[in-house]
Every structure is written in structure tokens, then in C-alpha cells.
């Protein structure tokens, strides 16, 4: 338990953490060297992966310094001008910052509340289907939208929701008496974005939970039945716990890119009339940065989002451990 605690007090500095961690390990009966020797094959297994992370993730990491530069590709990192925190100050001082933060934050929260549980619920319900062939067909159907590009989805959304003859609006006007400007009304923007993302990704999201559910023990079900547990209780007490660790890990990882909203989706769904709620960090970076080739600025915003992510991941991980879960570390 002691070592667990130490592990959970993570710092951004991994080296420090490892040293501290190693220190506590020495206390155990065998020495460091013995443990290294004992696990030598495990370390060997680690090598390809570590090589990958060093070469493809950490070697390019020097690119982050351009957040503090006025970077120009031709001049390169050594030739570009250093500007210190100017890009960050620009970002935070931008009169729109709080509106962007608000929009991004609200979308991120809605995403956690509505989109994150959707694949879990869907997987649980799928799991309850008794007809095997039927289940397979439904599974295959719901995973298809994942493969469609946002450009096409946006186009289809327009076809369905437009006030000029869209099917949805025709139904709405039958029931409600008048049409609703789903595509332009700011209050409909967020529901629309959530609806799209749930439609596109929740079926795909079930894949991982179905894999986890595959490990649920038949006998446990039988035991539950003997205990007289109904369907709902079995789902709650047997099925759900089986995927709990997966849920926790996915949740923590999701928090890591909490502020990432689907750029393409939002960009395509935003228009002159709903931009007040559709402007988020990602579209902002696009408008002020990437279209103009301003790498420094977008890197700075990315760094900011990363730091927010670190805080959230570490916080969530700690919380998960406090609640008796494994966390990800």
C-alpha cells in the first residue's frame, strides 16, 4: 500500500518520480540488482516499445519550443526569432478567450456526460440480445458510421435537417406546427454536435466493451440467477463490474484530451448564425493559425491544452486510486 501511494503522487517530472519509486522498492527484501536480473526478460520485451517512444514520440518533442518562437519553417528552430511567452499572452488576452473557453468547456462536458456513456449502454444492451445472429448484424451495422468522413456526415445532416424540405423538419412541422432551424439556431448547435458524435462513434466504441464483456464469467451469471437476480440486477452486479476497469481507464484517458473537440466536425457544422456557440479552441487555432501557417501559435495552444490534460489525468488517476480502482499508472 505504501508504494502504491508513492506511485500515485505523480509529478510531471518522470525521472524524479522513478527515482523516488525505486527508492521505496529497495526496502523490499531483494536488492535492485536482483530484481533487474529477475525481470531481465521483461525488460527485453520492453525494448522495442521503448525504442518506438524515444524515436517517434520524444525525438520530435523538441518541436514544442516553437511555441516560444515566431517560427518560420525555412529559418528553422535555430534561425527563428524567440518571443518568450508572447504567443501564450496573445492567446489569453484575446478578447474572445473566455467565450472560446466557455464553448470548448461546455462541449467537452456534454461529451463526457452524453457521449462517453453511450457506447457502454449500447454494449450492455447488445450483450443482452439473445439471438446471436441478430446481435452480430446489429453490431456490424452500428460500427459502420465510424468509417464515414465528417464531410459526408455534414452533407447528410444538411439533407435531413434543412428547413427547405429536410425529412426531419417535415416531421417536426407535422407534430409541432412549425419548422425548427436546427442548423442555424445557436441553441441547437450543441445537441446537433452531440447527436452526430453519438451516431458516428458510439457503435465503434462498443467494440472495446464487448471485448471486455466477453470475459464475464458464465458461472457468475448462473450464480446470480440462482440468487433470484432479475435482468437489471444482473446487468448491474455482474456485467457492469466486469467492464469497470476498462471504463475507468477510458475515462481517465479521455480527460487527457478533455479540451480537444472534433475540429472537422465543428468546423463543418458552424455557420454565420451559430458561430457564437461554435467557436472553440480548435477552430480558433485554425482561423488564426493554420490557414496562415502560424505553427508557433497552434503549438502554444496545443501546449496549453496538454498541460490542462496532464492536470486532469493526474487528478483523475489519483481519484480512481482513492476509490479502489487501478488507475492507469
Amino acid at each position: 500500500m505504501d508504494s502504491l501511494k508513492v506511485q500515485s503522487v505523480d509529478t510531471v517530472n518522470p525521472g524524479y518520480n522513478a527515482a523516488k519509486n525505486a527508492n521505496t522498492e529497495i526496502k523490499s527484501e531483494i536488492t535492485k540488482f536482483q530484481r533487474l536480473k529477475r525481470d531481465k526478460w521483461l525488460y527485453l520485451l520492453l525494448i522495442p516499445g521503448l525504442a518506438y517512444f524515444i524515436i517517434f514520440k520524444y525525438l520530435p518533442m523538441w518541436g514544442i519550443v516553437i511555441a516560444f518562437q515566431d517560427y518560420s519553417p525555412f529559418l528553422g528552430i535555430f534561425g527563428s526569432k524567440w518571443v518568450g511567452f508572447e504567443n501564450f499572452i496573445d492567446f489569453f488576452k484575446n478578447p474572445d478567450f473566455f467565450r472560446l473557453l466557455e464553448n470548448t468547456f461546455i462541449l467537452a462536458c456534454l461529451d463526457l456526460i452524453f457521449f462517453f456513456p453511450a457506447p457502454i449502454i449500447l454494449a450492455l444492451l447488445l450483450n443482452e440480445l439473445r439471438l446471436q445472429a441478430y446481435k452480430s448484424v446489429v453490431q456490424t451495422f452500428i460500427y459502420v458510421p465510424h468509417f464515414m468522413s465528417w464531410v459526408i456526415i455534414a452533407s447528410i445532416t444538411y439533407i435531413f435537417f434543412t428547413t427547405s424540405g429536410g425529412v426531419v423538419n417535415e416531421i417536426v412541422s407535422l407534430i409541432y406546427g412549425k419548422e425548427i432551424n436546427f442548423l442555424s439556431a445557436p441553441e441547437w448547435f450543441r445537441p446537433l454536435i452531440m447527436g452526430q458524435i453519438i451516431w458516428k462513434e458510439s457503435g465503434w466504441g462498443t467494440v472495446i466493451f464487448l471485448a471486455a464483456l466477453a470475459s464475464v464469467d458464465k458461472e457468475q451469471y448462473e450464480a446470480a440467477i440462482v440468487d433470484g437476480a432479475g435482468r437489471m440486477r444482473r446487468m448491474w452486479h455482474v456485467t457492469l463490474p466486469a467492464v469497470r476497469s476498462t471504463i475507468v481507464v477510458l475515462l481517465i484517458l479521455r480527460l487527457g484530451n478533455f479540451l480537444d473537440t472534433g475540429f472537422q466536425q465543428i468546423f463543418l457544422m458552424s455557420n454565420s448564425l451559430n458561430r457564437s456557440v461554435a467557436d472553440v479552441f480548435d477552430t480558433y487555432v485554425y482561423f488564426v493559425g493554420i490557414t496562415q501557417g502560424a505553427y508557433s501559435y497552434s503549438t502554444a495552444v496545443g501546449l496549453f491544452k496538454g498541460i490542462v490534460g496532464v492536470v486532469l489525468v493526474l487528478g483523475a488517476n489519483k481519484l480512481a486510486k482513492k476509490m479502489g480502482q487501478d488507475g492507469i499508472f
Partner: peptide, 16 residues
């Protein structure tokens, strides 16, 4: 834990 930090860190920051 060092390795895990290394991995998580690489998810959150990228050199571009």
C-alpha cells in the same frame, strides 16, 4: 511508473 509517465506524457504533448 517511470515508463507509464513517459507514455502518458507522450499522449498529451507532441512535437508537431
Amino acid at each position: 511508473s517511470f515508463f507509464m509517465n513517459l507514455i502518458v506524457f507522450s499522449m498529451l504533448f507532441s512535437g508537431g
